[in-house]
């Protein structure tokens, strides 16, 4: 695929892809896509359908998004990996992950993308002074520990490393395609640890999180505990793995 590459070099504007993993999101996806379209006419939107059983695919197609239909459910990690692979093959310069449930404000997309001017990966962070997003209990502890470890690793103060609102430049897309674990939380922590250890730079941009338009956030303390243990395990494993070398495309 060298055609799109040549094209993006001719034009000045970076070719940007919005990757939206969606699994049974028929309640919200149409409005989320409509809102995105009204804000970002220049960006392509790829909905990675993670084996939805409802009308998510049809709604996304009608909304004019690129639909990448996974034959069965792979989880967010698998869907995102597939999205990055699409971005890589089609020569996108930047890719940004946006949730289908409308949690991520389309107005912030350009803010998060702007973070790529300084780093390879830009995270839209929910705790960074802006907005009223709060989490308590074990989930909170997990997030604090993860943020601390990743801040140490990346030499940048990060406060919200589990945010799914993150952008990647060409180097990061390449890295994600090489190493993007599809396991539990691999899409957020593991991939980030690996990217940082491979020499990529990270920055964070404060964003506001909105309430979900559909579905309920889980407040189950047992689940939160499981989340804590599994996320720390995932972090520990990622820290001991061998880093994959990535070549800098400077």
């Amino acid at each position: 695929m060298d055609d799109p590459l040549a094209i993006s070099q001719r034009t000045n504007a970076p070719k940007t892809l919005i990757i939206m993993p969606a699994w049974n999101e028929e309640e919200v996806i149409a409005s989320t896509l409509a809102e995105l379209k009204s804000h970002h006419l220049r960006y392509d939107i790829a909905v990675v359908d993670d084996g939805s059983l409802d009308s998510t695919v049809e709604l996304a197609r009608q909304a004019g998004a690129i639909v990448i239909p996974l034959p069965f459910n792979l989880g967010v990690g698998g869907a995102m990996r597939c999205g990055y692979e699409y971005a890589r093959r089609h020569g996108y310069d930047r890719a940004i992950q946006v949730d289908a449930d409308g949690q991520h404000d389309p107005q912030d997309i350009d803010l998060v993308l702007a973070g790529l001017d300084q780093a390879d990966i830009s995270i839209g962070a929910r705790f960074a002074q802006k907005g009223a997003y709060t989490v308590h209990g074990p989930r909170r502890w997990a997030m604090v520990v993860l943020a601390w470890v990743l801040s140490r690793l990346s030499h940048v103060r990060l406060t919200d490393v589990t945010s799914g609102f993150r952008a990647a430049n060409r180097t990061a897309i390449e890295q994600y395609c090489r190493y993007y674990p599809v396991e539990y939380l691999g899409d957020t922590i593991d991939s980030l640890v690996m990217a940082v250890r491979s020499g990529l730079t990270v920055t964070q941009v404060p964003v506001e999180m909105r309430a979900r338009q559909g579905g309920a956030p889980s407040n189950n303390p047992f689940k939160a505990m499981v989340y804590l243990v599994r996320s720390l395990f995932s972090l520990a494993i990622a820290l001991t793995q061998r880093a994959t070398s990535v070549r800098r495309s400077s």
Binding site: T11, K37, L41, I66, P69
Partner: peptide, 29 residues
């Protein structure tokens, strides 16, 4: 799939002039 042909929008190299058929929210429904 009715793919909105993301690559077809780029060949001219004129971002402002592109017809961009799939990106017009009012056209598709």
């Amino acid at each position: 799939l009715v793919d909105p042909t993301p690559m077809a929008t780029d060949p001219d190299g004129t971002p402002g002039m592109k017809p961009a058929p799939h990106q017009d929210p009012s056209a598709t429904p």
